[in-house]
Design a protein around this nucleic acid. Structure first.
Lengths: 345, 345
DNA sequence: GTTCACGGTAAAACCGGTTTGATGAACCGG
DNA sequence: CCGGTTCATCAAACCGGTTTTACCGTGAAC
């Protein structure tokens, strides 16, 4: 009737199910002839062991989880996520481990999702979009759910972390713009309670020596546009803007253009994360590629190591590459042109 | 020590575990007072039922699967997937159902992945990137694994399908270009053994009345570029090109520009799938938005309906919207300019 | 005043594997 | 030739729930 079970195989091979189990797991020696009989029977019956039963008995799901609390709309326009997941899967695939994904909105739903993971859906999780003070860290500790954190988490915690140096590329970008003659360099950041946004913003502030031209965005095109408008409306407007992602950068430079500014002649623009289309825009967008695929790989490897019993460890992935393109080419504008002729828009 | 089990709760409430189970499932009436005692005990012990045990006993994983056989590199530069998954999750989240993702390369790995799903990881799967003759359809039938197919599958099959009308937007695009005066309209398709690529290409061939200017690409920027080069090298080159996705379209129009052509003045360009950056390119790219979020939603709802025992059904999602933008604006070029001055590149 | 239906709970079987303890046969040194 | 290993296998317990069966007490029906 239904799918064959281990008992069917055992019966067909003339042994008990314990022997079948051992033949596959190798945890007890089984004679070659018996093994052959068992494998033949399994083959003939087309037996696939029930992953449900296996998970219960072995107390392990053979799956790792990712809980995403992003707004679906933002996720859909994000270059990071699919590449990151690809990297994770590239590691898991070789171990017959599956990826369990849950997308939630709201703290309650997120807690529920993590409890579900801890209740046996997954053996461990990868935590993205870490906040500077993140409730999930103590929460996961209390759940005793193995986890790998993506991004530096300073406070005491028992988890492995996968860090990336976000500061260096920002410093390099600022240096690059300075070399071109820019003195008024602005930054439109992501939400500053994210560790990565904060790290980038901090490196920016340190590089330019102040936060006068720092504006906090939220990674959406809308905020990129609005904050660009605000910056360009300043009496002494910036001649260059660094955005925390490409979506905001593109929204920003579209807006600047709509007000009659040329990129990069009147305004230099740089993004972050190097969306796959950014190189094809015109002018092509300077950005920082951060190899999310590789970070996904490293995070998955680290989690598997944790699950194998190795002690937690913090690894740093050196994966950011500055992609200098046309949007920051050429010398800085001479002086700051008179405030925009807004009536011309 | 470990997490509390249903037995611990039962003991604390002074009942048997069967009663606890029934109190939650409601499959047997339990008096209000007993229920209250059970819930209080569960709360106090912080009991979360083991999803592993539940899956085994109830013969259902409370999860649905998606197996992706795309090359990770392609996936990472694809606008469709994250939005589609968001749509799927938006439905699953409300039912406490998880999404199990497996990315594989190669038929063997893909079969293994589906067998894993069938062995209890998932209660059903959503099948993407359907081929015109797809081995997965009979394979899944043999596995008796509930599935929803995304895209029209003509051959006899027992599954629900979620269709989209790909032909109409193509016809509209061709009509639009014709109205602008274009007579030489080319199409760079996706692999023609995919049902959706084929449907688009077929609609194109029907509209323009021939396949002289049809070229088969593979959705990558590289193929977009190469096939554009080929088309522009023709003695009587096209004045407009329809691409099967935005990535190829952008690669194509970058290439055309590098050869000194203006878009849209010398070459009109249209994409497909409406990447979130396409509207921000300059000129903005005409494309066909196909609302992958909504298709994900519908596919998930359909699968849940199948799992609930409803008979398989084929639903059509009407979700394509033509986004006419600058890349196809203006009249067609007068005549076909002399073959490109290749020496100028 | 028995009979019957039914609400409420206990007891036990079951889901399909893994793991552990026991057993018998072969092997081995003294 | 005997006690002690080692090897191969069986039998049973176990993982933590769900589901089925059985049983008891009570109020309604006859």
């Amino acid at each position: 009737m239904g799918r064959p079970t281990i008992d069917d195989v055992a019966r067909a091979a003339g042994v008990t199910k314990a022997t079948v189990s051992h033949a596959y797991s190798g945890k007890r020696p089984i004679s070659a002839t018996t093994k052959a009989r068992i494998f033949a029977a399994a083959e003939r019956l087309d037996w696939v062991p029930s992953s449900r039963a296996r998970a219960l008995a072995a107390r392990r799901a053979n799956a790792v989880g990712v809980v995403l609390s992003r707004d679906p709309a933002i996720l859909a326009s994000d270059a990071f996520f699919p590449a990151f997941i690809s990297g994770v899967e590239s590691v898991l695939a070789g171990h017959e481990i599956a990826l369990v994904l849950q997308m939630v909105t709201g703290r309650t739903a997120e807690e529920r999702a993590y409890r579900a993971m801890a209740s046996g859906r997954a053996d461990g999780v990868i935590v993205l979009d870490l906040h500077r003070v993140d409730w999930r860290v103590p929460y996961l500790r209390d759940l005793r759910l193995p986890a790998v954190l993506l991004g530096a988490y300073d406070a005491e915690n028992p988890f492995s972390t996968v860090r990336t140096d976000d500061a260096t590329p920002v410093r390099e970008l600022v240096a690059h713009l300075r070399a071109l003659g820019h003195t008024r360099i602005a930054h439109v950041s992501g939400p500053l309670d994210y560790v990565h946004s904060h790290a980038r913003a901090a490196a920016y502030v340190e590089s330019v020596g102040g936060d006068e031209l720092l504006r906090e965005g939220d990674f959406t095109a809308g905020s990129g546009r609005a904050l660009t408008a605000e910056l360009l409306g300043l009496p002494d407007r910036p001649t260059a803007v660094l955005y925390a992602n490409d979506t905001m950068a593109i929204a920003g430079y579209s807006y600047a253009r709509s007000r009659g500014l040329e990129v990069p002649a009147d305004l230099a623009v740089a993004g972050f994360d190097d969306d796959h289309l950014s190189a094809h825009l015109s002018p092509a967008l300077t950005s920082v590629s951060s190899d999310p695929f590789r970070r996904g790989k490293v995070a998955a490897e680290r989690l598997l190591a944790d699950l194998a019993g190795e002690p937690a460890e913090s690894v740093t992935v050196d994966c950011t590459v500055l992609r200098l393109r046309a949007s920051t080419a050429g010398p800085a504008p001479e002086a700051h042109p008179t405030p925009l002729e807004e009536e011309l828009s």
